[in-house]
């Protein structure tokens, strides 16, 4: 049994401790927003937040999440109030097939949480672990800047609400 906080809820998952967190989330907790792309930490499709940090859940064991706070794309926002990253993704029509986008958004949200004015090269650095085979990078970059601006401008956005929730959960 691995205990963790998953999107703000305490859960106990009956998994082998060596099972990658990705499969604990997808197959056992049945949250399928987190995607499989490579299984080797190369593509970022499986990105989740572990205590607020973007991690690749395919190369993070379930055991490493014991007692930690995990946020998946399902926990990024609630339906009424989308995360600034999600809003910017819609406004810029970022997704093509959409498959990589939960991982992209989780990496972007982690970046913005620590840096509300990222430069192009800071965005490149934070995002180069996330592959989009459809080729949505120019839009992702633009959307991140917009989302960061929103996070910067409005202290009451869901981004800050989200990081408050994060810190509460992890405290």
């Amino acid at each position: 049994m691995i205990k963790m906080s998953l999107n703000g809820k305490q859960v106990e998952l009956d998994v082998d401790s060596s099972m990658p967190l990705l499969y604990a989330i997808r197959d056992i907790a049945q949250l399928t927003g987190t995607k499989f792309g490579c299984g080797l930490g190369l593509c970022g499709a499986c990105t989740v937040h572990l205590d607020g940090q973007a991690v690749r859940s395919c190369v993070t064991t379930a055991a490493a999440a014991e007692g930690k706070s995990i946020t998946t794309v399902e926990g990024l926002s609630n339906d009424e109030q989308l995360h600034p990253v999600q809003k910017a993704w819609i406004a810029n029509k970022v997704p093509q097939c959409g498959y990589c986008q939960s991982g992209q958004m989780m990496s972007a949200a982690a970046l913005i949480a620590s840096n509300t004015a990222p430069t192009d090269s800071e965005i490149d650095t934070a995002m180069q672990g996330n592959i989009c085979r459809c080729g949505t990078y120019p839009r992702i970059k633009k959307a991140i800047k917009e989302a960061a601006k929103e996070a910067r401008a409005d202290s009451l956005t869901s981004a800050s609400a989200y990081s408050e929730q994060e810190s509460q959960v992890s405290s």
């Binding site: 794309v73 926002s77 993704w89 819609i90 997704p95 959409g98 939960s102």
Partner: peptide, 12 residues
Amino acid sequence: GVKDIVTAKAIY
């Protein structure tokens, strides 16, 4: 379908 994608409701 774009909102379903960004809110992880899209089914693959």
